[in-house]
């Protein structure tokens, strides 16, 4: 009886794992099937107004890139503070708040940026979209930096200080270098996370049919356009949405796998 129960439970658990894998396979097969059949090289050469995706892909990368330029330095500096400078209750408070912010609903971040950027600027803009994404990114970068720095052995710090280096030199030249691989992986994963975001962009950057480098106006976004295209009843729009989804997912998964590969190779 005990052994039978044991077998049943182990079987159920294995079946659960198979269900999880089946969902992954189902989604990926759908994406590859629908995506590849709609994918065409000209999609990368034309803008949405001419039935292509070029402006959307570039726009999404530019916004995620600017968000990284804002979010990575701020997040890393904050992580450095938590691990190297601060102590006691204040550190615990910031760590907790950062964890909460990491799980805050992304649409709420969008609403916040709408209130503080879009309303004063009288319109949606690439800047607003980038800021929304950077707010999503900061707590993730803090978490990564914090965790990775905590793995650096104490002796390294002491050795640096003993050599007479000032603390920030020790941090930049020794500690960050020692934690480089882990931090790089974390940064790649956080980039992968924000580049696939839709909700914070819906009413901050919106999207645009045209190629644009002017960040003060509505800015082309791949994800927001996927939402619009998928809700469009014409089949050509839907095909385009599938092609865009395929490209988006491949980008996100590639960045993810790259991050894992770096860790595995060096670690």
């Amino acid at each position: 009886m005990r052994l039978l129960l044991n077998k049943i439970v182990l079987l159920l658990s294995t079946v659960s794992a198979l269900i999880g894998l089946a969902f992954l396979a189902w989604i990926l097969f759908t994406l590859v099937g629908k995506g590849l059949s709609s994918l065409h090289f000209s999609l990368f050469l034309n803008d949405l107004i001419d039935g292509g995706l070029r402006n959307l892909i570039v726009g999404q990368f530019i916004m995620a890139g600017i968000a990284s330029l804002i979010g990575i330095p701020l997040g890393m500096m904050a992580g450095i503070y938590l691990q190297e400078y601060g102590s006691g209750r204040y550190v615990r408070l910031i760590r907790d708040l950062s964890d909460i912010m990491m799980s805050a609903p992304s649409i709420v971040i969008g609403a916040f940026v709408y209130a503080i950027v879009v309303v004063p600027m009288h319109g949606t803009s690439g800047i607003a979209g980038s800021i929304a994404l950077s707010i999503m990114m900061i707590p993730i970068v803090i978490n990564t930096t914090d965790n990775m720095l905590s793995l650096v052995p104490r002796e390294l710090r002491e050795a640096g200080i003993a050599l007479g280096a000032s603390k920030y030199r020790v941090i930049l030249d020794i500690i960050i270098k020692a934690a480089k691989v882990g931090i790089m992986t974390g940064l790649l994963l956080s980039f992968a996370r924000i580049i696939g975001e839709t909700a914070p962009l819906l009413f901050t950057s919106e999207t645009s049919n045209y190629f644009s480098v002017d960040l003060t106006e509505a800015y082309p976004s791949l994800t927001v356009s996927i939402y619009a295209l998928a809700n469009d009843p014409t089949s050509s729009s839907r095909d385009l949405a599938w092609a865009a989804s395929f490209i988006l997912t491949m980008m996100v998964l590639m960045i993810n796998l790259l991050g894992r590969y770096i860790t595995r190779k060096k670690g």
Binding site: G20, F23, L24, I27, L31, L189, A192, R193, G196, E197, T198, A199, T223, I226, Y227, S245, L248, T249, V252, L253, N256
Partner: peptide, 8 residues
Amino acid sequence: LAAIPSII
């Protein structure tokens, strides 16, 4: 699977 964007 967790990394796939929610819109997908």
